[in-house]
Design a protein around this nucleic acid. Structure first.
Length: 413
RNA sequence: GCGGGUGUCGCCAAGCGGUUAAGGCCUCGGAUUGUGGUUCCGAUAUUCGUGGGUUCGAAUCCCAUCAUCCGCCCCA
């Protein structure tokens, strides 16, 4: 047996790699245009960073981490990047920078799961974090960045859902009430939900088991869900966020069941979904996580951010990013062709030639296949006369020009 | 962790107990030796994921194993 790529990992081959470059370049363009700066953090971190930062009740920490022991240290391949960015923020004293601190990143993440459509063990995320602003204007900008990015990728028709989880104060009261009404019939809920009751009762709300959904339809439970449990400050924050979104013309729907799997969120949470992705349909997820920095040992810092799954974006990009060549050099001499192509490359023209130096027919064939705009023919005559025959491969017109005029010619067309 | 599907050339595949294991794409060679994108001709799997078994005979049936895909849980 030959060696294969590991389960849940994929090679990104030419054909797709152009799309990846497009996603990365577009991210840089959109985010730096709004004055976000790129941060690159290590791919592995101390395991404790994730168990504390992501939360011990989450699936990520409980069953999906790539953890290994090295020299008695427990190391984990990052399953997401917010914890790492916050660690870097604290470690590098970035709270002393003028707020807001606006960062973006992209790179591989690792989660030990059964692969399926839209889910791999090594996958890639592009994300953004905004630190130091308490007001909902920060949430609004973060969301606007996500929307703008998707628009620039040519994916404008995705649906945005938002919700507010409240703050620790009001959420605790809400959680207790929810726990109270759900626990009346808790023995009828699924096994998962029964264990969630104590650890994270909010997660019961988006359980997919039909039986649980039916139980949740209970009037008493619905009354609690629909009650405006969040305190005045949180409610005010949420209302203002909606005002900002309305003012920007961003469409959204409110999903009271949206709680998200990570422990660190408070107030705003949001998700962007696609209808054409199969069952793994979340393209973007994020929210506000004001308590995380302090939890990880830093100064209390208001924070909001999101991450998108790049593989999922990729499968939504259904147009080709086409490759082309400015010039393909056709010659009877591989050496002459090489030198000319190299000269053109040095002057910024995308050029190639045939290293096998077959007959002209083959070389022209190759020029067409590579989508070259021009063929520069360099036969014996041209070499002796310091000229080059230029053929426009789409019109088939050709003419002889002096070598000295090549760059002028290319600059003019 | 659980459930289902699939495994024949680099890719897409036909074949369903006895065939020299179709076909298409890609690749390579050729159709007067300096001209392409169209066309035509030709080449490329002793072998059907792997290991056993049944049979006179297996890619085709059975068992095991591995890989992969899809779904559940959950998420990007």
């Amino acid at each position: 047996m030959t060696i294969q790529a590991q389960k849940g990992t994929k090679d990104i081959l030419p054909g797709d790699s152009q799309k990846w470059q497009f996603m990365e370049e577009t991210a840089k363009e959109v985010f730096s245009n709004a004055n976000y700066q790129e941060i690159r953090t290590p791919i592995f971190e101390a395991t404790e960073l994730f168990s504390r930062g992501v939360g011990t009740t989450t699936d990520i920490v409980n069953k999906e981490m790539y953890t290994f022991i090295q020299k008695e240290r427990s190391i984990t391949l990052r399953p997401e990047n917010t914890a790492g960015v916050v660690r870097a923020f604290i470690e590098n004293g970035m709270h002393r920078l003028s707020a807001p601190v606006k960062l973006w990143y992209h790179g591989p993440m690792f989660r030990y799961e059964r692969p399926q459509a839209g889910r791999q063990r090594q996958f890639h995320q592009v994300g953004l974090e905004l630190f130091g602003i308490e007001g909902p204007i920060a949430d609004a900008e973060a969301i606007a960045m996500a929307i703008e990015y998707l628009k620039k990728l040519g994916l404008p028709d995705l649906s945005l859902e938002i919700n507010s989880l409240g703050c620790p104060k009001c959420r605790t009261a809400y959680r207790d009430r929810l726990k109270e009404v759900i626990s009346k019939n808790i023995d009828q809920f699924c096994e998962n939900c029964r264990s969630r009751l104590d650890k994270n009762p909010l997660r019961i709300l988006d359980c997919k088991v039909p039986q649980c959904q039916e139980l949740l339809a209970d009037k008493e439970i619905q009354d609690v869900i629909n009650s405006d449990f969040i305190c005045e400050e949180c409610s005010d924050h949420f209302e203002k966020l909606k005002e900002y979104l309305d003012a920007m013309g961003v469409k959204y729907s409110i999903n009271k069941l949206l709680v998200r799997g990570l422990d660190y969120y408070n107030r705003t949470v949001f998700e962007i979904k696609s209808n054409s992705l199969g069952s793994q349909n979340a393209v973007c997820g994020g929210g506000r996580y004001d308590a995380l920095t302090e939890l990880l040992g830093g100064q209390p810092t208001y924070s909001v951010g999101w991450a998108m799954g790049m593989e999922r974006l990729l499968s939504l990009i259904n147009y080709d990013v086409k490759d082309y060549l400015d010039v393909f050099v056709v010659s009877s001499s591989a050496k002459e062709a090489f030198l000319l192509a190299q000269y053109l490359r040095e002057h910024g023209f995308k050029s190639d030639f045939d290293m096998n130096c077959k007959n002209f027919k083959k070389q022209f064939e190759k020029a067409s296949k590579l989508n070259a705009k021009y063929a520069f023919v360099l036969g014996e005559d041209e070499i002796n006369n310091s000229t080059v025959t230029v053929k426009n491969l789409s019109t088939t017109e050709q003419k002889i020009i002096k070598r000295d005029d090549m760059l002028n010619f290319l600059n003019q067309v």
